[in-house]
């Protein structure tokens, strides 16, 4: 069940020049409901007339033990700037948990989780979930430079991590789609989140190699729960549907990204 709840910020860490990890817990210590990888929250940005709408953010991790939600935020100005400026102890009002989840692989299937920049956010939660369920997920993280690679230690605890950066400052130089792992290894399932051109390239790679692939979309979302009909994606055979309720996770076969 979706809910609106006031949270309190328990931690706000700057991971690199633009990326922040904010941890929040319910203000009145209400136990958090079950949440699934791929789901997101809608963050209310306080006291700002120029930032009118809530901002959707992936659930980076659900820390059951500490009753916390982790949010990975890239400060790209505007609303994200306001959120990253918040201090420990300040309030944050969230609508959550919203959206669907990734589908689990079949038994013994190999998985690769490909994230670009802050798009790695939901993949940590997914990776933990896969790992808890006995899978051995592998990760391919990409960015413009080493500064875009966040939470490397957390990912490394969950499985093998490959890295690419466009400037070569960390890992392989180039784009995630050029990483040799994609040529040398055989995966049964790919999950991806990041910039749309990256996800389209991965969807194409998956289609060419007959690999099942799921992507997390980030269309503009005023409401996040299927009321405003603004975040639509044109899906094969079904037409315009809401990314917020029927997604944000889609099998790339359903999308009109590639022919």
């Amino acid at each position: 069940m979706k809910q609106q709840l006031d949270f309190i910020i328990t931690s706000n860490k700057k991971l690199n020049k633009q990326t922040f990890l904010i941890k929040v817990t319910p203000k009145n210590a209400e136990p958090l409901p079950e949440m699934l990888p791929g789901q997101f929250v809608q963050v209310l940005v306080h006291d700002s007339s120029s930032i009118f709408l809530r901002r959707p953010l992936s659930i980076n991790y659900y820390d059951k033990e500490n009753n916390e939600i982790w949010l990975l935020i890239q400060n790209v100005g505007g609303g994200t700037n306001k959120i990253t400026e918040l201090k420990v102890g300040e309030n944050l009002n969230l609508l959550f948990p919203l959206g669907n989840t990734f589908s689990m692989p079949d038994k013994n299937q190999t998985t690769l989780l490909i994230g670009g920049g802050v798009g790695t956010a939901p993949l940590l939660f997914l990776g933990k979930n896969l790992s808890d369920k006995g899978y051995t997920p592998e990760f391919l993280l990409g960015g413009r430079s080493a500064l875009d690679i966040s939470q490397l230690n957390d990912f490394e605890k969950l499985g093998l991590v490959y890295i690419t950066t466009e400037d070569g400052s960390m890992g392989q130089k180039g784009l995630v789609t050029h990483h040799p792992a994609l040529k040398e290894k055989q995966y049964d399932k790919i999950y991806t989140c990041g910039p749309k051109p990256m996800m389209i390239a991965i969807a194409r790679y998956a289609a060419d190699n007959n690999i099942d692939c799921e992507a997390s979309l980030e269309n503009h979302m005023p409401c996040g729960f299927g009321a405003c009909l603004c975040c639509i994606e044109n899906i094969k055979e079904r037409g315009n549907i809401c990314v917020c309720t029927e997604g944000p996770i889609f099998n790339t076969k359903e999308l009109q990204w590639i022919d």
């Binding site: 120029s50 009118f52 009909l229 994606e233 044109n234």
Partner: peptide
């Protein structure tokens, strides 16, 4: 089917939409 994406733009203290009666 309504109009194509993008159908929304945030504005100061408001928003523009062009859902188009989907």
């Amino acid at each position: 089917q309504g109009n194509d994406y993008p159908r929304m733009a945030e504005t100061p203290s408001g928003m523009l939409n062009s859902v188009g009666l989907q």
